[in-house]
């Protein structure tokens, strides 16, 4: 039987001190096991070679349909999943080769806020314990300052000090999300992955949480990776945006560039699908046919060619390479093969 191997060739990255996080050709494959011996028969290519970097104090938005691997990217960066290939540099340090003790020391610096505030809080712990557990574990503050520190963090996130003895079921969705934010923030992180932090909330509560995240970013000089499928929220909060499709980035650039002129056909379709709260705006919607193909058996060539309106012969056989159309604005599509490359240097 043919042995399945993961291709793991990439050119190592040179660290730029401006960047908090640098991701280079990151891959995460989940094995599919079958038969009595649980032999690996194939891989689900959840993340298939992604590269980007995030500057200190900025927010990168990651958008895409469900099942395109956005969450897996976030988790692999934090080493909640082991990578299958590529590199993740956090302040120039490869995260996935650290020893257990080193990893433990690094954990407080990178935090995550989960999507569903209803299932990510332990129902058996009071709020003070949820927020404070990791603070005590990592000795963030001396013992005698511990109580004041927790109170301070909680009030910063819009919670009252008397909430400390309450349990998660006594809170509404918006308040629970505040608790999750307080928990992440209490460790004084540099980098926070926000995995769809507002999609489970009402519109009016969404606004409160987004404002809170922005205020905290300014105050603590935080760097966010903001994962969401809601483009209007991503547009509001992000500085740079990456659009994902089936485990790869199809377009990457600053918010202004991407929203002014989306280049990739998928980005265009995604943008035209957003409902606009104005009954007068009748625009030409590009409706994508069908649904996302299986990441276990992605299409050959360009992964998007099965649903693409501008599909050419070339797209079916040859995978496109990232191309810099404007400084800092990359697109992965054969349509732009003939455009002149515009390098920053």
């Amino acid at each position: 039987m043919e042995k399945i191997t993961i291709d793991n060739t990439f050119t190592p990255l040179v660290h730029n001190p401006d960047n908090v996080l640098e991701v280079n050709a990151l891959k995460k494959y989940f094995p599919i096991k079958e038969g009595m011996l649980q032999r690996t028969v194939g891989y689900v290519r959840a993340v298939d070679g992604i590269s980007f970097n995030i500057k200190r104090g900025t927010t990168m938005g990651l958008v895409g349909e469900s099942g395109c691997g956005k969450t897996t990217v976030g988790r692999t960066i934090l080493r909640l999943h082991e990578k299958s290939g590529g590199e993740v540099l956090f302040n120039g340090q490869e995260v996935h080769t650290l020893s257990k003790a080193q990893m433990r020391a690094l954990r407080p610096k990178m935090q995550i806020i989960f999507q569903d505030p209803y299932s990510s809080l332990s129902p058996r712990l009071p709020i003070g314990e949820i927020v404070g557990e990791a603070v005590r574990e990592h000795n963030i503050v001396p013992k005698e300052e511990f109580n004041d520190y927790i109170d301070e963090i909680m009030s910063e996130c819009g919670l009252q000090p008397y909430h400390r003895d309450r349990y998660p079921h006594e809170f509404s969705g918006g308040q629970r999300q505040r608790i999750c934010i307080a928990r992440a923030l209490a460790l004084n992180p540099e980098f926070v992955v926000c995995d769809e932090p507002v999609s489970a909330l009402d519109v009016s509560i969404q606004a409160q949480i987004i404002n809170l995240l922005r205020d905290l970013q300014e105050e603590h000089n935080l760097t966010y990776l903001f994962i969401s499928h809601d483009l209007s929220v991503v547009e509001h909060i992000s500085d740079t945006i990456g659009v994902m499709y089936l485990g790869s980035l199809v377009e990457f650039g600053s918010k202004e560039d991407i929203f002014r002129e989306p280049l990739h056909p998928y980005t265009k379709a995604l943008f035209s699908a957003i409902p606009i709260p104005d009954p007068n705006s009748k625009m030409n919607r590009i409706v994508l046919e069908g649904s996302i193909p299986s990441p276990a058996n992605p299409p050959k060539g360009c992964k998007f060619h099965t649903r693409c309106k501008n599909c050419m012969e070339k797209c079916k056989t040859e995978a496109p390479q990232p191309k810099e159309i404007e400084p800092g604005h990359f697109v992965v599509c054969h349509l732009y093969d003939n455009e002149p490359e515009n390098k920053a240097e």
Binding site: V203, S204, Q206, A207, Q208, I210, N211, R214, L231, S232, V233, E235, H236, F259, F271, I274, I276, P277
Partner: peptide
């Protein structure tokens, strides 16, 4: 009015979202 102001809209830049 509050409901409409609290939803971010593409191509309408606001510094802070309104929250009721």
């Amino acid at each position: 009015i509050g409901l409409m102001a609290s939803k971010p809209v593409i191509n309408r830049r606001v510094d802070r979202l309104y929250s009721i």
